[in-house]
Simulated scan of single mutants.
Amino acid sequence: MSTIPPEDIDTTGHAGLLIGSRWSPPADPTWVAVIAHGYGEHIGRYQWVADRLTSDGAVVYAHDHVGHGRSAGERVLIEDFEPVVDDLHLLVQRAHEENPGLPLVLIGHSMGGMIAARYTQRHADCLAATVLSGPVLGSWEPTALADLDEIPPTPIDPTTLSRDETVGSDYQVDELVWHGDFKRPTLHALRSALDAITEGGRLTVPTIWLHGADDQLVPIGPSRAGWEQIAPEGAPAKAYPGARHEIFNETNREEVLDDVLAFVHEQIAS
């Protein structure tokens, strides 16, 4: 599988310039993927995922959320996730305009899975399917830090990302990753977004929920509980034994992407 370098693209979002990437397949695309990344990281960490998707015929779009990676904004400061969903909609609209008639699949990981779930509630007509990877749903323990007088340091233990040790070591030295503490407004916004999703009703787009069974960053129990409140009737779900948080970067990542693509093929065929 060859690595296709991305083309830089940019969008003017609600709080400034959003820097993103577009990966094109070697032949004419047959479908479109839009990726929403997780808290504190950036889309550059998804090159391998983009390689798998473009090899399958997808043209892939993504951008760094406000306050993340190369995009504008104070680092990891998000006071309301609804405008972040609006930003994502600008990217989805661009992807549709540049690839008219092709089915579009939204793929969200972690906080990006939360954003993707909310997007799917608000813009179901734009999507053929949604993939949620280790999504923050239901409730998330770190949001309780917002209730403390002083938020303690909360560094991410890199060993919780993947059983592949290089994933954690690369994360630690990645200058585009946020290595500092949570910000109170962001924690409040996360809690509000989770409540909005729970109250937003069941998803009407074919959606799959995938999670690492040994995920310590976004524990599987609360996420599964949140998923069960919004899951479409009969929606598929799968937990990977032993897998940690970043299932797209796990030692069984080929299996995970095989499952993603099998689901996508089933949806775009119908």
Rank of each mutant, 00 (worst) to 15 (best):
Glu79Asp: 15
Leu176Asn: 06
Pro25Tyr: 03
Ala231Val: 03
Ala144Trp: 07
His188Gly: 00
His123Ala: 12
Val49Glu: 09
Gly242Leu: 11
Thr130Trp: 04
Pro29Val: 07
Gly20Thr: 09
Trp140Ala: 08
Gly13Met: 08
Ile197Trp: 00
Trp48Ile: 08
Thr130Met: 09
Arg94Gly: 06
Pro83Ala: 02
Ser139Met: 07
Ala36Gln: 09
Gly13Arg: 00
Ala213Trp: 03
Met111Phe: 05
His42Gln: 12
Ile115Gly: 05
Ala262Trp: 04
Ala193Glu: 15
Gly57His: 03
Val205Cys: 08
His188Gln: 12
His188Cys: 04
Val173Asp: 09
Leu194Lys: 07
Glu97Ala: 14
Thr11Cys: 02
Arg52Phe: 02
Ala193Met: 14
Arg94Ser: 05
Leu148Gly: 02
Ile115Lys: 07
Asn99Leu: 12
Ser24Asp: 12
Ala50His: 06
Phe182Asp: 03
Lys238Val: 00
Gly67Arg: 11
Met1Leu: 14
Thr3Pro: 01
Ala262Phe: 02
Glu233Thr: 13
His123Glu: 13
Ala117Pro: 09
Val32Phe: 01
Glu74Ser: 06
Val136Trp: 01
Leu190Ile: 15
Pro142Gly: 03
Phe248Lys: 02
Met114His: 02
Val167Ala: 08
Leu261Tyr: 03
Gly138Leu: 11
Glu228Gly: 13
Gln47Ala: 11
Arg22Phe: 04
Asn99Gly: 13
Tyr61Val: 04
Val218Ser: 13
Arg184Lys: 09
Asp195Gln: 11
Ala144Asp: 12
Leu17Lys: 11
Ile35Asp: 00
Gly112Glu: 04
Leu91Lys: 00
Tyr119Ala: 13
Trp31Phe: 13
Ala235Trp: 03
Ala269Val: 01
Ile230His: 05
His245Gln: 08
Ala196Met: 10
